[in-house]
Amino acid sequence: MSNAIETHDLRYRAGRDFEIRDLSLAVPTGSIYGFLGPNGSGKTTTIRLVLGLLRPSRGSISVLNRTIPGESTAALAETGYVPERPHLYPSFTVDEILNMHRAFFTRWDPAKAAQLVETFRLRLNQKIRNMSKGETGKLMMLLALAQRPELLVLDEPTDGLDPVVRRDVLMALLEFVSEHGATVFISSHLVHELERICDWVGVMDDGHLVAEMPMQAFKSGIKRLRVENVPAIVAQTPFVILARDTDALGNSEVWTVRGWQDPMTQYFEGSTPSLREVVDLDLEEGFVELLQVARERHPEG
C-alpha cells in the first residue's frame, strides 16, 4: 500500500521551547487519517511542513509521491488545504476568491463549486471579512473540495463551528471522499468527531508522534484490564502494557493495554495474574491514556 504522505525522521525547531522531533508518519493512500493531539502538540506545524510552508532542519517529506519542498508545486496542485486560521483575502467576495482559485487550480470543478455554494448557502457577493466563522469554514472547505484534490489536508476544519455547520462540512467531506476516493489528512483535538469518520489515527504530543495505527486497532486494541494476584514480575504478555495502577483497595491492579484481542484472555487462564474485567475504552479515553503514558515515559517533554 502506498502512502499519500510520508515523513521520515523529520525535525523542525519552532522558537526556543518547541521542536518537532524524529517525526516519521505514513498516511496510507485512500485513508481518512485523523491527526490527533492536544493544543500545541505540533499538529499545525507538521501540516505546514508537509505542505512545504516550513523548511525542516532534517528529514524528508513526500506528498503524493513527490518530494517536498522540491516538487511542492505539483503536489499542491492535487492537494486541497483548509488551514486552521482563515487565510483568504478579507476584501475579496466569495465570487472573487472562487475565480482566483479557479485560475490557479487546473482541476477546478465549477459545477462542484456551484453545488457547494448552494449546499452551504453562501452568497457570492458577500465579502469574506463580513462572513461568520461558520461561513468562512464552509467557504474554505468548498475551495478545497472544488479543486478535486487527491489529498485533502484539513487543519482543525470544524474548530469553533456550531454543530449544524460542522455536520454540513463533514457531510460534504465524506460525500467527496466517497465519490473520489481521496486521501484525507485531518487534524483535530475533537476526538469524538474523528472517531466517526477516520480509518487511521496518529497521535501527536509535544512535537513527536506517540502512536499511529488503524482506527479499528486503536479503538479495540486499547483496553483497561482489572487483574488480581499480580506477581512481582509479570511474564511476557501478548499485548503491550501501557500503564499499571493499583486500585484504591490495594488488592487488584488496573492495566491499560494496547494490542488487545479477545483470544488473549487465554493468557490469564490457569496462571497468575487472573483477569477479572475487560473495560472498553472509547477513542477519547484511549487518547488520554496514550498521552499520559507518553508523558510518563518522556517526562521532560
Binding site: L51, T73, P83, H87, L88, Y89, P90, T106
Partner: peptide
Amino acid sequence: HDHRGDHVYALVLPT
C-alpha cells in the same frame, strides 16, 4: 494582503 495572511494562501497555490 499576503503579509496579513502570513503568505499562506499564496504559498499553497500550485505555482
